[in-house]
Nucleic acid binder design. Sequence first.
DNA 1: CGAGGCATTGATCTATCTCAATTCTAGTGG
DNA 2: CCACTAGAATTGAGATAGATCAATGCCTCG
Lengths: 350, 350
Amino acid sequence: MSKCILIIEDNNDIRESTAEILELSGYQVLQAANGKLGVDLAGQHKPDLILCDIMMPELDGYGVLYLLNKNPDTASTPFIFLTAKAERVDFRKGMEMGADDYLTKPFDDIELLNAIESRLAKKEKQQAYYSRSLQNIEGLANSSKNGTAELQNVIASRKIRQIKKKQVLYYEGDTPQGIYLVLEGSIKTLKLAEDGRELMTGLYKPDDYLGVNALLLDETFTDTAEAMEDAAVCLLPKDTVLTLLDRYPDIGRQFLKILSNDIREKEDQLIELAYNSVRKRLAQVLVRLSKQSADPAHFKISREELASMAGMATETVSRTLTDFKDEGLIEKKGANVQVLDLNRLMKMKN
Amino acid sequence: MSKCILIIEDNNDIRESTAEILELSGYQVLQAANGKLGVDLAGQHKPDLILCDIMMPELDGYGVLYLLNKNPDTASTPFIFLTAKAERVDFRKGMEMGADDYLTKPFDDIELLNAIESRLAKKEKQQAYYSRSLQNIEGLANSSKNGTAELQNVIASRKIRQIKKKQVLYYEGDTPQGIYLVLEGSIKTLKLAEDGRELMTGLYKPDDYLGVNALLLDETFTDTAEAMEDAAVCLLPKDTVLTLLDRYPDIGRQFLKILSNDIREKEDQLIELAYNSVRKRLAQVLVRLSKQSADPAHFKISREELASMAGMATETVSRTLTDFKDEGLIEKKGANVQVLDLNRLMKMKN
DNA sequence: CGAGGCATTGATCTATCTCAATTCTAGTGG
DNA sequence: CCACTAGAATTGAGATAGATCAATGCCTCG
C-alpha cells in the first residue's frame, strides 16, 4: 500500500509541481490550497506525512501545526515545513513547536524525496522500537488480570508522538482527548498564577500516566503539560480508556492507585509550601530530582525550573544553591548540579 | 433477642454486682477484669453496649475507648464510663474522646438501667434515622447502574458512628479500615508539619467520602481526620469496597471522579499558597467556607482553624479579618463571621 | 568569536511571623 | 442568675526571610 502525503501550500504552481514529483515516485498525494483546508483534510484522511508552507494567508503554518497537534489522529504524523528563506528564528520556532524537518524553497526533487523518505523511515523505526519496549511496561502491567493485558494491546497499537524539549503537550483550557503514557523523556505539568508565575505541580517519567485526573471530569485541563526534555508519549483516547474501564475493574483500580499517589504527593507539597523555609524546600526539590534522575546524583536544570518547583524566586534559588555549595552539599557549574551529600540534604533543618 | 452488655472493671465486687443487676433485668452480660481483656472481648462478641471503669491498671478506660474506636467492629458501640469521683476534667476528656455517657460510682440500680436503656434507645433511633436518609444519597447514587445500588445496600446495612466535635476519626499513621461516608456534620483532614503547625488539607460534608485515597495504597494514613462539629459517619470496610470495586466498574469510576476532584482542589490550593498574599488566601478561604456552609453567609469558625486553612499565623488572621471588616466585606463577632460582600471577596486582588 | 540569554551578586524593601500584653467571650460554679 | 476564669481574639512592636530591582559576569551555541 502506497504512503499518503498531504501538501498544504497556497501557491498553486509550487503545490502542483511538488505533487507531481511525489506521484511519480509512487506516493498517493492530497493537496490543500490553504491552512484551514489542510487541517480538515488531515483530519479526514490521516496522511502518513504532511508538507506545509509557513507563510499562508488566514491560517499560517504554525497555526496548522498547532491544530494538528491538538487532534489525536494527526498529532503523531510527521510534519515538514516548506519555507522560502531559511530564517534562523523561523527554523527554531518551527522545530520547537514539533515540526520534524525543514525544507527551504526552492528545493529539488532529490532533496524533497530524501527528506520524506528519511522521515518516514525514522517514524517507522521509532514506532517499532517503542512497540517493543511497550511489551514490558511495569506500570499497569504488574497485575496478571485480563484488563491489563487488554490495555497493553491498546497501547501497543497506538501511534507514538514525539515531543521536543519545551514543547507543550496540552495547555490549560484544552479539552482532554485521553490520557498520555510517557514512553521516554520527562514531562512536567504546571499551573500559572494570575501574575504569570508558574508552579510545577507534577513531573512524569517513562511509564507514568499523564492526565488521568482530567479523564473523568468533563472539563478542560486545569494545568499545562510541557516537555522538560525531548520526550515520547502515547495517547490513549478517552473513549478507549472509558470502554476498558467499564469492562475491566482492575484497570480502574490501577488508576485509582495512581491518583491516590498523586494526592499524597500533592499534600506533601502543600505542607512544604506552607510551613517550610526556602532552604528546606529547595533541598527537598533537589532530593526529588536526584531520585528521579537517570544518573542518580547529576542533572541539568535551569534556575527558573527549580524556582517553579519550589515556589520561590530565581534569585533566591541562586543564592541558596551557592550556600549549599559552600556547605559542601552540592557541586554546580552553570545549569549542571551534582549532589554530593544526599543524606544531609534530606535532613536539612528548617 | 436480649441485648448484650460488656462490663470492664477491675474491682471484682463492683463488676459482679453490676453484672447481677443487669442479668436480673434481662440483659446478657460479659465481664472483663481489665482493659486488655475488655478490648478483646468486645472485638470477639460485639456487645450492644459497653460499661467501662476509667481507673484501671495497665490499660485505663481512655486507652480502652481509643482502641475500641480504632476497630470498625466496635467503633460505633455505645460506651459508658464508670468513674468514682465526678471530676470535671475527666468528664470533658472522656466525652471528647467519644464516650456516650458517664456514671458516677456509687450508682444505684435505677440510675444504671436508665442510662443503659436511654443509650440503647438513642442508638436505635439514630440508626433508623440515618438508614432512612441513606436511601437518597446523591453522591454515588446518581448513576442507575447495578454497582451503585449494591453499594447503597452496603451503606444502609452498616453501623453508624457518632463523632463529637474535636474528636479524631483517625490519626496520621493509623491503618485504614475502609472508607468513611460522612452522613452529618463536617470532618476536616489535616497534616502536621514537623514543628507541630497544622495545615487543613480537606473539608468533608455530608455525602462526601473520606479516605478514598488511602484505600488502595497499602500504607497508613498520611493525614489526620477530625470532626469540626458533631458528625456522623458510616464506615465501609475495605474488603467490602474492594469486592464491590472488582465487581462493578461504575463504582470505580465514581471513586476516580472523587479523587480527580480532590487533586484539582489540591492543585488550586498549591498555587494559592505559593504565590498569593495572605489577604487573598484568607479571602478565598472565606469564599470556600461560605459556599459549603449551610447558612450561605454566616458561620462560626475559630481563628486557629482559619489559620490552618490558609497556612498563616492566627494573629495575621485576626488582623486581616479586622481589615476586611473595616472595608465592609464581612461582619464579625467573636468566632462568628458573616460574609457581606461575597463578590468582592472573590475578586480580592493580590 | 560574538551575542543573547542565564546565572550570580548586591542593595533595598516589605509582608508576614513572633513575642508579648490586653481585652473579650463563653462556659462553669456558686 | 450572675460573677469568675480559662481560653480565644485582638492589638502592638519588632525582627526577618525572602521578594524585588538593578547591575554585572559567564556560558553556549550558532
